[in-house]
Computed example of a mutant assay.
Amino acid sequence: MKKHLLALAVLLAALGMVVAAHAADKTLNVFIWSEYLPDEVVADFTRETGIKVKLTTYESNETMYAKIKMLGGKGYDIVVPSAEFVSRMAAEDLLAPIDKGRLPNLSNLDDTFRNLPYDPENGHSVPYMWGTTGIAVNTDLVPEGQITGYADLWNPALAGKLLLPDDMRTTLGMALKVLGYSTNDTDPAHIEQAYLRAKSLYPAVKVFDSDSPKQALLNREVSVAVLWNGEAYVANGENDKIIYVYPKEGANRWVDNLCIPKNAANVDNAHAFINYLLRPEVAAKISQEMGYATPNKAAMPLLPAEIRDNPIIYPPADKLTGSEFETDLGPAQRLYEQYWSKLKTGR
């Protein structure tokens, strides 16, 4: 009798392990920017596949990178780094190769988003969304036309009315552009000048927010904010007095990408999710709700005209004069981080 009971216990334990393993096969851990993936899209994917998606969010590339590096590429199945962090993470062997054979919907991508310099042949990334960083102005509080570029943010009249993102590249890049340099400048003297320029602005800043900066604008806590265009789009939809200004010095352009960490536990599910997001109707839904531009060419005809023709989301060519994509800083990254630390600690 005891032998039968023991055998039954072993069988039940084995079945439990199988069930647990099966449950693990039906999970996907996504590490993504805040407010960057519609709940409906996640729910529809789970309904169709049975794969349960767990979202964890971050507010900056630096936060995401530090965590993935600390975990050795484990813990998450998908991350969403911006272009310059794709090349950095790939070089440090933190990303798994993309298996294009599992992504038939990859053909929907616009050719301009294939084989970009930060990831030749899209070996480690699939573009998710793209956009710009610029300036949102509440024209109820600041006359329209008063803010035309980053340099105008140093106007003493804006002291206590300004929001900046808690983001190293945006902040130092903005100061570099004001000084006439590239947002990717690696000259130590120029980086120091940018730090000093940014430092002189910090006392005028009321709020630092990279999570949901539109809220401070909508709540009239600030009248001017440096933010991503999708945040400006949502704010403009709720208050048409909030406009988006492409800085005359040149806007920052960026591409956020779907990547799989090197030691992800659910690689098959990650590819299934990426392929799902590449469906034209899904990509169109994301662009419409989030207010960012899609790199999915097949999705464009599905967008309503008010999205496709909205200059906040899809900027006219003349608004991109002087704009730049951020690139990997190489050894200069450390110097940027040192100055960023000094900025944040008030030194």
Rank of each mutant, 00 (worst) to 15 (best):
P316Q: 12
L179Q: 12
W254D: 07
V234S: 10
Y246H: 07
T171W: 02
V86A: 08
Y246N: 03
I51W: 05
D152N: 13
N296C: 15
G75K: 01
H124Y: 15
M89W: 01
P156S: 05
Y292Q: 10
V245E: 01
L218F: 08
S200T: 13
G101I: 06
S82E: 10
K26E: 13
I312D: 13
K100E: 05
M290G: 00
L179I: 04
A90P: 00
D268T: 13
F85T: 09
A14C: 12
L12D: 03
L218D: 06
L141H: 05
A305K: 12
I78K: 00
L164F: 13
V267T: 12
D187G: 08
K199P: 07
D256M: 11
W254C: 03
A14I: 09
D328T: 07
L116T: 13
H190A: 15
G72R: 06
V19R: 13
G230T: 04
M70T: 08
I32K: 01
H22M: 14
V53H: 06
Y118A: 00
G322H: 08
E306N: 14
R279Q: 15
K3C: 03
P120A: 14
Q288C: 05
L103W: 03
C259W: 02
L5V: 08
A136E: 06
W130N: 09
A159E: 14
D166G: 07
L179F: 02
H271K: 04
R220T: 06
N105E: 11
V30F: 15
E221I: 06
K206V: 07
S223I: 01
A216K: 02
A83I: 03
K100F: 12
G134R: 00
E289A: 14
I51D: 06
D44V: 04
S223Y: 00
V18R: 07
A283L: 11
K54A: 14
R220N: 11
Q288G: 08
L201V: 10
Y202C: 08
N229E: 05
I243E: 01
E326C: 04
Y65F: 11
L217R: 01
S182V: 10
T345R: 13
P97Q: 04
A305V: 09
M89L: 15
N219E: 06
K177A: 15
D39Y: 09
T186R: 13
A264Y: 01
L218E: 09
F325E: 11
E35T: 11
P247T: 00
N275P: 05
N296H: 00
K319C: 02
D111I: 13
D152W: 04
R347M: 13
A264E: 05
D268H: 08
A175P: 02
Q288A: 15
K214I: 04
N105L: 10
Y336R: 14
F273H: 02
G173A: 12
P156M: 03
A43L: 14
P117H: 10
P203E: 01
G123I: 02
G123Q: 12
N229D: 13
L6E: 05
K342I: 07
L163F: 04
N115S: 15
T57P: 02
N310S: 10
A305H: 07
A23K: 14
M89R: 03
I313K: 04
S210Q: 08
I286Q: 01
I147Y: 05
A7T: 07
A7G: 08
F85D: 11
L28A: 05
R279I: 11
V79Q: 05
H190Y: 01
G230F: 10
E326N: 14
I98A: 07
L258T: 05
A332H: 06
G101E: 11
T139E: 08
